[in-house]
């Protein structure tokens, strides 16, 4: 698989034919959020990237890889492996254990790397709320465990340099750890999301409106600072959720913790 250091999005036009006037470079190891109302055209952007649009798709966008246009041989040459995708709708359908499944994936990559399977396994368990074993059937994993295994596998075993993520929920998997893992693997990560934590945790966000790129916003210092407080609100919500699950009471004291911005409480 080729080494992809940068991806350039050259603007086309929106549904009304207005030019996007965009020349945007995304680098390996960075996260870009794609936001916008449902049906605004987020998937279109991801699909332009997937097929390395050369000003020939309905949006008129161009995608450059390492600053160079892609010819037809490049566009067909990757067997769909340039871009890995992760979405909430995905499931494991193969009747194998986690261990067998990872071995099968490693074989398809002709991977000789020792320890790769156990690395993926450990990493997935680290992301998942509840632990699982190598003998668990992949079809019997919970939603969170499945997502954790898919993300770990995508980061460590799949060699696609670009990862497109479509809205991962927080349930049972640590999203921020997951995204950090993907960027550490030097991938170019795009996350289509409505989640403020994921959007503000990204380096940049692309806002889509009427089928076109409406704004490109770098995450500001103020937003980065606000993020830690928003994370606390999120932690409060998980704490409340946890207490209800465990059959415990939700006390007012919990809400006051936020006002005192006492992060140690949740540590």
């Amino acid at each position: 698989m080729m080494n992809v250091e940068s991806l350039t999005v050259i603007g086309g036009h929106n549904k009304h034919g207005d030019a996007e006037n965009i020349h945007l470079r995304l680098f390996a190891g960075t996260v870009t959020a794609v936001t916008g109302p449902t049906g605004s055209g987020k998937s279109r952007l991801l699909s332009d990237i997937e097929c390395l649009a050369q000003f020939d798709t309905p949006t008129g966008r161009g995608i450059l890889v390492n600053d160079a246009p892609a010819d037809d041989r490049d566009r067909f040459g990757f067997d769909g492996k340039l871009v890995a995708q992760l979405s909430q709708n995905m499931n494991f359908v193969t009747d194998l254990t986690v261990g067998e499944f990872l071995a099968m994936h490693a074989e398809s990559r002709r991977s000789e790397e020792d320890g790769l399977i156990s690395a993926v396994f450990k990493c997935a368990n680290n992301l998942a709320g509840e632990k699982f074993t190598l003998d668990t059937k992949v079809t019997q994993l919970s939603g969170g465990q499945s997502r954790a295994l898919m993300i770990a596998d995508c980061a460590l075993m799949s060699n696609s340099p670009i990862v497109l993520i479509d809205e991962i929920e927080n349930a049972g998997v640590d999203r921020r750890k997951a995204i950090a893992l993907l960027t550490r693997s030097e991938k170019i990560v795009l996350v289509s999301t409505h989640d403020p934590l994921l959007a503000l945790g990204a380096d940049m966000r692309i806002v889509i409106k009427n089928g076109g790129i409406y704004r490109v916003m770098e995450t500001s210092e103020e937003e980065k600072n606000a993020l830690s407080e928003i994370e606390m609100i999120d932690a409060l919500m998980s704490e409340v959720r946890g207490r209800i699950r465990r059959g415990e009471r939700v006390e007012y004291e919990l809400l006051r913790v936020i006002q005192r911005a006492d992060t140690r409480y949740f540590a």
Binding site: K81, L86, N89, M90, N91, T94, M104, M150, S158
Partner: peptide, 27 residues
């Protein structure tokens, strides 16, 4: 391919490639 895991998609495409060396594979 949108409802199975990325890993299964990759293994699937690889198995297609084992049966047919020259075809263009498109998801």
């Amino acid at each position: 391919g949108d409802i199975v895991s990325q890993a299964e998609r990759e293994v699937f495409a690889w198995n297609v490639r084992q049966s047919n060396e020259r075809a263009q594979i498109i998801f």
